[in-house]
Simulated scan of single mutants.
Amino acid sequence: MGGDRILPSVRLSPPACRRSGAPPDVLTTLAHPWRHEALIRILAWREISGRYRGSLLGSLWPLLTPLLMLGVYTLVFGVIAPTRWPGAQEQGIGMFALRLLAGMVVHGLLAEVLSRAPTLVTSQPNYVTKVVFPLEALGWVSLLTALFHTAMALLVLIVLNGVLGTGLSWSLLALPAILLPYALLLLGLAWLIAALGVYLRDLAQLVGPLVMMTMFLGPVFYPRQAMPVAAQPWLAVNPITIPVEQARRALFEAQWPQWDVLAQYSLVAMAVYLFGLWAFSKLKKGFADVL
């Protein structure tokens, strides 16, 4: 990867952490996104550009994919098998498809990050055994790559909604605030799954079905109100529920997010982020022996 030119700049320097009296590895990993920002940016861009290298349409695919998804959802859920969504008939098939696409875009971020997580470390054994490398950066690279595709899909969705749907509103400015805690939560889960995946290879087989469960047990194909009243509180346990609902609120209802709900979600997301980072920093000490 041209690592001889990059890796010397990312060697860890823990003395400052020792002076603070805190565990060196924990403070180092907390600081690594800023200390290794250039490395993370280079690897993320290489991942994005490499995915479409050699394809006929190249960089147009991140924009075309959500359009293809929208067409499929409109056909399947609006024409072939109409679903029960409050107000769907009044708003039309197109509006229903846009709401469905919004849920799929938010879930797609989770799917891309967590599906790669079990093999995030095991697929890069040279980074573990042969070079000095900040392994936590792999989680950031995976997240940034997924965020790029999510941003492209959201851009298409916003334009289509502006032209064919409910229009544009100032509440769209809240989308970064909605996605930020969601991204941190996913990064924490990715670190945790990646670390456990080194020791438990069965996780690679388990994560796929779990990712699919989050889609069907979340408000992607139906709103929370369509579920039985007794089951509705449990829907909040799904990590995509709050981001999907708040994103739709900002996109289609021209309303700002429910800040109290988003604040509670952010606290949980930060706890998951910190726990995943702590677990990864502890478990990575044995990666070289396993790999």
Rank of each mutant, 00 (worst) to 15 (best):
E136G: 14
L68F: 14
S266D: 08
L200N: 04
A38L: 13
L235E: 03
R201Q: 14
R19E: 14
D289R: 02
A190S: 15
L155N: 01
I193F: 06
W34M: 13
V128H: 06
L135T: 01
N161K: 04
K282C: 12
C17H: 10
L64N: 05
D202Y: 05
L135F: 02
L203P: 01
R41D: 11
L7H: 04
L12Y: 05
S55W: 03
M152S: 15
A250H: 03
M152G: 07
L175G: 06
M270F: 14
F221T: 03
L192M: 15
L70V: 01
S171I: 02
W34C: 04
L179K: 09
L291S: 06
W34S: 03
A117F: 04
L110W: 00
H107W: 15
I6V: 08
E245C: 03
D4F: 01
G21A: 10
A44G: 06
T119L: 07
L143E: 08
V79N: 08
I93L: 14
Y73S: 02
S49G: 03
W170R: 11
G162K: 01
D260K: 04
G139W: 00
I48F: 10
W45D: 12
V131R: 11
L164K: 05
G162M: 06
V10G: 08
V163A: 11
V141H: 04
G2A: 12
L192C: 12
I6E: 12
L283C: 08
P134Y: 05
T28P: 02
A102Y: 01
F216R: 07
L217F: 15
L203M: 09
L184A: 15
L135N: 04
L120N: 09
V163Q: 08
G139L: 01
N161M: 03
G71L: 02
R41E: 11
P33I: 02
M104R: 00
A236Y: 14
A226R: 07
M95T: 11
G108C: 05
A137P: 00
L147D: 12
A254V: 03
P233A: 05
G103F: 00
M1S: 13
T166A: 15
G71V: 00
L63D: 08
A231I: 05
A97H: 00
A288W: 08
P257Y: 00
P239W: 10
T214C: 14
T241Y: 02
F77K: 03
P86H: 08
P15I: 00
G2P: 03
L189K: 05
A204S: 12
A271P: 08
A231D: 01
P243A: 03
R18M: 11
R46C: 05
L235H: 01
W234E: 07
G197F: 10
A137V: 07
N238H: 10
L109I: 01
R53S: 13
A16I: 09
L168V: 15
A22N: 08
Q89P: 02
R46D: 13
G3D: 10
K285F: 13
T241N: 07
V131W: 12
A183M: 11
F96V: 02
L30Y: 04
L63P: 05
L147P: 00
Q264F: 04
T241P: 02
I42S: 07
A226S: 15
A177V: 13
E136K: 00
M1F: 08
R84G: 08
V76K: 02
L67A: 11
V79P: 03
Y127A: 11
L180Y: 11
R35T: 13
F148C: 09
